[in-house]
Write a protein that binds this DNA or RNA. Structure first.
Lengths: 241, 241
DNA sequence: CATCCTCACTGGTACGTACCGGATCGTACC
DNA sequence: GGTACGATCCGGTACGTACCAGTGAGGATG
């Protein structure tokens, strides 16, 4: 009934349930009971519960003791997630485009080397790009990537999503990042590029992106304060008291 | 061995393990094997696995098939979490203090009413405070709270954590919040309060805090761009592709 | 002395059973 | 007609067994 020989049963059942709740059920609808699922898929209740609890943990389902398990209403806005500029702008309803300002191999600076786990002086790609939304400047980005990991990056078309190139050409998927953000004045250099006053506020993001192998990207972005805002959910920490 | 009659066994075991890994074990250390724990606490392996998987889900433990379960190295910086200004500043190694600028009951504005689920004109506390770190201005805050929920808020000492007052006096715990942040120029009014130039950049946070009963707080904070930064982790969203 | 292999041990998967308390609803009783 | 009760469903808890695929230490082998 349920065995591809590759994934464990609870993972297969999880996928089957996810497909059902995405394609057939409305938010608030009830999924079949656990005992019902044991019969439908011919598995034990422990397996059913493993599949369900995985989806509960991801916020897709909610259990109600005595009643059943219901499909969670999707959040107003998804949680803070790792998205490329291209994806991000499309979600916000803008048309993204990119102007590549420079692309060269340079010696890694001290902070970049430290962030990427390299030795100072190791060669990295330095790519500087202007990001536009609806043909107006939105952000300036300067990024560093280890040449050892992406040897022929300069040959690629860098006007789209670099993350997409990483995946298709190098099989490197960036799954996690840490970023720090603060506010600055645009200053002479960026005012000109972003087409704002020198005293205009910008939001700066210093981000280090990592694949399963470790950090492979440092990017410093400057977003126009008058065009960009960031939403996030906060939850009470485990030790907050 | 393990039964207070109140919490389920797996929750009690979870608490016991959490205490152990916080007080006795170093990051990277191995906890006793699952089969060992079944003997120590006289519970079934399913119960042990429930307790462990809960801690794994929260990032406190990591399982390594074939080897054991190890205490997770604490993150460089904790994830984005819901903390009061007081807690936040203490964690950053600053000495927080507060100057209450005003406190009054007013009619809720349109956006505030909408955010808090009130009717326009409903009465809310409006509290304006200047937040200091090491006796220098760090942020300006203006907050609104429904008078119906917190009738005597004006009688309290508002120079500390309002969240603490909510908990102790009203039994209201704010467990979740959504906030939007962007960059602005300080402008005339805030430049004076924050002791910066009018063109200086500030980070603005518009936050709606909710208890289990629903939204009970709206706060707009303006942090000095030269003194404040925010760090966060990003993960690949479930539907990112 | 180095290498290989066995074996004990780990977490992962999967099955089964049993009972609890809350929710729901039909039915029998006032 | 309204109320109280009980059957029946639900998820939550807890127990047990069994086997698998890795890991790694130590003994047997060359």
């Amino acid at each position: 009934m349920l065995n591809d020989g590759l994934l464990p049963k609870h993972a297969q059942l999880r996928a089957a349930l996810l497909k059902t709740i995405e394609e057939e059920l409305q938010p608030g609808a009830m999924i079949p009971s656990e005992r019902d699922l044991t019969i439908r898929y011919d598995v034990s209740r422990a397996t059913v519960r493993a599949a369900i609890s995985s989806l509960v943990n991801e916020g897709r389902l909610t259990t109600v003791p005595g009643r059943g398990t219901v499909v969670t209403r999707p959040r107003v806005e998804s949680n803070l997630h790792l998205a490329s500029f291209t994806q991000d702008m499309r979600q916000r309803g803008h048309r993204p485009s990119t102007e590549v300002l420079s692309c060269a191999v340079v010696a890694a600076g001290e902070t970049t080397a430290k962030a990427l786990g390299l030795s100072p002086g190791d060669r990295v790609w330095e790519i500087e790009r202007l990001r536009l939304a609806d043909d107006e400047p939105m952000a300036h980005e300067i990024s560093w990537y280890p040449e050892a990991v992406f040897p022929a990056l300069g040959d690629e078309d860098l006007s789209g999503s670099i993350y997409a190139i990483f995946e298709s050409t190098y099989g490197v998927v960036i799954t996690e990042a840490r970023q720090t953000t603060w506010a600055e004045q645009a200053g002479h250099a960026y005012a000109h590029l972003l087409e704002v006053a020198e005293t205009a506020p910008v939001m700066v993001f210093d981000r280090v992106g990592s694949s399963s192998e470790g950090p492979v990207e440092q990017t410093i972005s400057r977003y126009r304060g008058d065009r960009y805002q960031l939403s996030m959910s906060l939850h009470r920490g485990p030790s907050a008291r």
